[in-house]
Design a protein around this nucleic acid. Structure first.
Lengths: 114, 114
DNA sequence: CAGTATCCAATTTGATACTG
DNA sequence: CAGTATCAAATTGGATACTG
């Protein structure tokens, strides 16, 4: 992900954190429960392994998720949300709420173009 | 702008509304005061006329901004924020706030990669 | 299982010249 | 002034095969 330029109001930082088509959904899933790599792949139909890996690595760098390896006969890696991730998820919730209130209207506006 | 698929939680709607590199800044500017096309071009260094036009049209479709033409010897077009735009701007404010609180930490994390 | 490595396609953004 | 029209460049996302 290319990072946006800082804008002095903090928004670029937040948008960088959720940039990429899947990060908000990944954050949502690991917020519900710790998830394994394969589990996330299954929960996010359509995502490729490459992209899932990329986004997880970036979120790990941003300390939104934590990656833990459990050694064993079968390798196991678990991704869980950090307190930072929890707080970001809450901020995102406000946006979701806005979207929920406006989705009917926006969808109608789109349709009226056709 | 390609629109995201609806996701049932409203987030896609909100992200579509602010999708595109410049929409949040455009919204911010017209929220401060009604702006003319040329004024926005000046206030958003680096944006091309094509992109500015596109994003304004989409925001107009979504009823986030209102476009008014004032006829005269010299043509004048003014863009102003709508109540919908105001409410979206407030939701975005929450994200900005999160970003503001985390930008030092995130910037440091980025640096530690190098 | 949990990734990497490649290669490719789709989109988005940008530069620029032109117009009513 | 306020755009349109083109063409090109930059990114991102996706499909797939392979590995420890």
């Amino acid at each position: 992900m290319k990072r946006l330029q800082q804008d002095g109001c903090g928004l670029a930082t937040a948008l960088n954190a959720i940039g990429g088509k899947w990060k908000t959904m990944i954050l949502w899933e690991v917020n519900l429960a710790p998830r394994r790599f394969g589990e996330l792949k299954r929960l996010l139909p359509g995502i490729s392994e490459k992209v899932l890996t990329q986004q997880l690595r970036e979120m790990e760098t941003d300390a939104l998720v934590r990656r833990e390896v459990f050694p064993g006969a079968v390798q196991k890696v678990e991704y869980s949300v950090t307190p930072y991730g929890v707080s970001l998820n809450e901020a995102i919730g406000v946006l979701s709420h806005w979207g929920k209130q406006h989705e009917q209207r926006m969808a109608a506006a789109e349709r009226n173009l056709a």
